[in-house]
Simulated scan of single mutants.
Amino acid sequence: MKVAIAGAGAVGRSIARELLRSGHTVMLLERQLDHIDRDSVRDAVWVHADACELQLLEDAGLQDYEVVIAATGDDKANLVHSLLAKTEFGVRRVVARVNDPRNEWLFDEAWGVDVAVSTPRLLASLVEEAVTVGDLVRLMTLRQGQANLVELTLPPDTTLAGKPVRSLRLPRDSALVTILRGGRVIVPQPDDPFEGDDELLFVASAEAEEELRSVLAPIGTAEHTDTAAGLTASQDVEY
């Protein structure tokens, strides 16, 4: 796969090294000449160019790349580069770095972004995921902001313990995709029982996430059995 990365700072170079290790072809675009360090990523194609200049991108052959990553430290530049990549060069997949979480709402398909990655939000989510039990935590936003990957860790004495997957009713446009149990990754089947400390990973549309949060809120310790027993929602989970 051919991947173009706009921004050859610490983030861009790190991404490039990882992709090169996986056997991909990588081009690094960097506007500031003093930031170009070919020895730091020897196997990448280095291009001195402004990622927001249409002619320079054409000269670099951006149209030949399957994936573009806008990884500069400037959100405005990342948005413009994403839009050019998608609309002018027909790049199939555009991933953009969000530096300021307040700008995250802009990084959507209207600006050519397929996947927006907000490092501050991702780190905060990972911290929440590590310490939160019994609450739904958003881990990341998936393609074009249409769906989110969310997680819930069941308390040790959850009322769901021993109940089959089919007993959990989820809202439309949401699905339980895997159960992490110790070192195991379990693809849930209707008759599989839940256990305390299970980590549940869901994919849900943005609209369904709040309803999913409401559905899962009663799943707590044994003292809340009556509430959890009344769990209802619009759609059964299907596998």
Rank of each mutant, 00 (worst) to 15 (best):
D108Q: 12
V203Q: 08
R38N: 02
W111I: 13
Q235G: 06
V215M: 02
R121C: 07
D157P: 01
T178F: 03
R184A: 14
R166E: 11
L54W: 04
V203M: 13
L142H: 05
A161Y: 04
P218N: 06
K76R: 11
S14H: 07
H48T: 01
E223K: 10
R17Y: 01
K76M: 07
T178A: 12
G112S: 11
D43Y: 01
D75L: 11
H35I: 02
V80W: 02
V80Y: 03
R143G: 05
I36N: 03
D34E: 15
K163L: 14
T232L: 13
R17S: 04
K86M: 07
E151A: 14
D43E: 12
V45H: 02
A49P: 04
R169W: 14
D198P: 11
V3R: 01
Q189I: 04
G61N: 06
E207M: 05
T178I: 05
F107Y: 14
E210R: 14
T158W: 01
V165C: 09
A217M: 08
V237H: 07
I179C: 10
W46C: 05
A8M: 09
D236T: 09
E18S: 12
P156M: 11
D157Y: 07
T141C: 03
A70Y: 01
S14M: 04
L180D: 03
I219F: 15
L212C: 02
K163D: 04
A44R: 01
S14G: 12
A85S: 15
S205T: 13
G73L: 04
A16N: 09
Q189W: 07
V131E: 11
A222K: 15
C52E: 12
V11P: 00
T225Y: 12
L180N: 10
E223G: 05
V203H: 08
E210D: 14
R13D: 00
N148D: 13
Y65V: 00
I15E: 00
V94D: 06
G182K: 00
E30S: 02
L149C: 06
I186S: 03
R181H: 09
A161T: 13
H81D: 00
V98N: 13
K2M: 00
E195C: 08
R38H: 08
K76F: 06
V113G: 00
R93H: 10
T153K: 15
S118P: 05
L176T: 10
E109A: 15
T87R: 14
A51V: 07
